[in-house]
Design a protein around this nucleic acid. Structure first.
Lengths: 119, 119
DNA sequence: GTAATATATGCGTAGTTGCGCATATAAGGA
DNA sequence: TCCTTATATGCGCAACTACGCATATATTAC
């Protein structure tokens, strides 16, 4: 029960829902989340960490980058249900659509992890 | 997005999950929830109200009783997904099983809305 | 080793949440 | 109308949460 509460708590925040929305698109590093969602690095890192601790994400490191993604293989069934529910719920959501749009044109291209959205 | 956050918030509390678990069994009045879960009337009422306001429940009145139930026909699709996810997640949960067990032997039998669980 | 870069985390603060206690409100019966 | 019963709600308080700011930690390149 405590675990389920934790999972719902993880999802009961807009910032974290928007992050999960990005990760439904593809794996991201902290600085990509930071820039795409236009939030502070600290805020991005903490919320990614929160989702990770709740059991939704997996983490791999590549050089300086911490890459988070949805742990589709490792998720317990009801977590999968929750992620799917979020995906469906955000399908027509304008903010979510714009966030994903920006991520699609983003690239992890080096120093400062610049999101190529200034183009 | 705000609505989705509200839905997850509604589910991110143990008391409310336990209430929803009862309502998965059947319609309940405040005093049944109060007694089955062994919580105060105030706590039962508020949490039922929270779930109702979040859009999960429907309410009908019968005399002194306020009867809450899961609004299966009126639920938006992703709400249905969430409720289903809760149901599955609580399937093997001991607390949830015991709560439902007690509710099964309960009856709305009059003054004080006594739950026939002393038998 | 030093400097630059990406991320994690300590600390403080404002806002939110859950709930006990008391009381208000609504409904039914005499 | 008054009394009883079921429920809703005001109020206060302790605990929790989200986040900005600053700094610590980890990694890489020179």
């Amino acid at each position: 029960m405590r675990e389920l509460v934790k999972a719902f708590k993880a999802l009961s925040d807009e910032t974290r829902l928007r992050i999960l929305n990005l990760l439904l698109e593809r794996e991201c590093c902290v600085c990509e989340v930071m820039q795409v969602l236009d939030i502070s690095e600290s805020r991005a890192s903490r919320n990614l960490s929160f989702l990770y601790d709740a059991g939704f994400l997996k983490l791999r490191r590549e050089g300086l980058w911490a890459l988070y993604s949805i742990d589709r293989e490792g998720l317990k069934e009801h977590y999968t249900d929750l992620v799917e529910a979020v995906r469906k719920a955000l399908e027509g959501n304008e903010t979510a659509i714009q966030d994903r749009r920006r991520l699609r044109t983003a690239q992890r291209i080096g120093p400062g992890c610049v999101v190529a959205s200034t183009n």
